[in-house]
């Protein structure tokens, strides 16, 4: 069986086909992470694939002894955030500056991330109301399944801060849920 490190070394030696091992392993996590940002299936597919492409281009500079996904995640996050900020710049909605611009039906109705039930819808709404940094750490832990070590590496924060950041983020999430339930 090919290990992740073997696949990275093979890619660095120019064997593009070996990159498939990494893509197949992480495509699901990458797609759902992008979906959390974009709320749109097609965009999430395209952006996660774009992030894999950019990671491939930068792979020669990657140390194969390090964790691939935490490094890849930073690329994915940048791709998604750039996309969102570009979209915000280009699509002023009903603010009067661009009175003719309207979103198509596909753009205005976000795709569902979770199987729908009342509680998951409430949690998803509450998550959307959090600050980006708070939402991100919860998503990394709960939906990306990262360990504290991986979160610390991904967010470039000390390991000791992961627990406190998670505490404050979850506390805010609970507060938002209470607010939405009122």
């Amino acid at each position: 069986m090919i290990t992740e490190k073997d696949a990275i070394l093979a890619c660095q030696a120019g064997k593009t086909e070996m990159y498939r091992t990494l893509v197949e392993k992480y495509k699901s996590r990458a797609y759902y992470t992008a979906l959390m940002y974009t709320k749109n299936r097609d965009d999430a597919l395209d952006l996660s694939q774009e992030a894999f492409y950019r990671a491939y281009r930068a792979l020669n500079r990657f140390n194969p002894d390090k964790n691939f996904y935490t490094w890849f995640y930073k690329i994915l996050r940048n791709v998604c955030l750039n996309f969102i900020s570009r979209k915000k710049e280009n699509v002023p909605i009903s603010d009067g500056t661009y009175p003719g611009a309207v979103l198509s039906e596909r753009e205005s109705r976000p795709d569902e991330i979770f199987e729908r039930n009342e509680r998951s819808a409430a949690i998803e709404n509450a998550l959307d109301r959090l600050k980006e940094t708070d939402r991100e750490i919860i998503v990394l832990k709960e939906f990306d399944g990262m360990s504290y070590n991986e979160i610390a590496e991904t967010l470039s924060i000390p390991l000791g801060s992961v627990m406190s950041r998670l505490y404050y983020a979850r506390k805010k999430l609970l507060k938002e849920l209470e607010y939405l339930n009122e």
Binding site: I113, F114, E115, R116, I123, E124, I138, E142, F143
Partner: peptide, 9 residues
């Protein structure tokens, strides 16, 4: 528990 029970579509 609730977040763990949420199933990705």
């Amino acid at each position: 528990k609730e977040t763990s029970d949420m199933k990705l579509k």
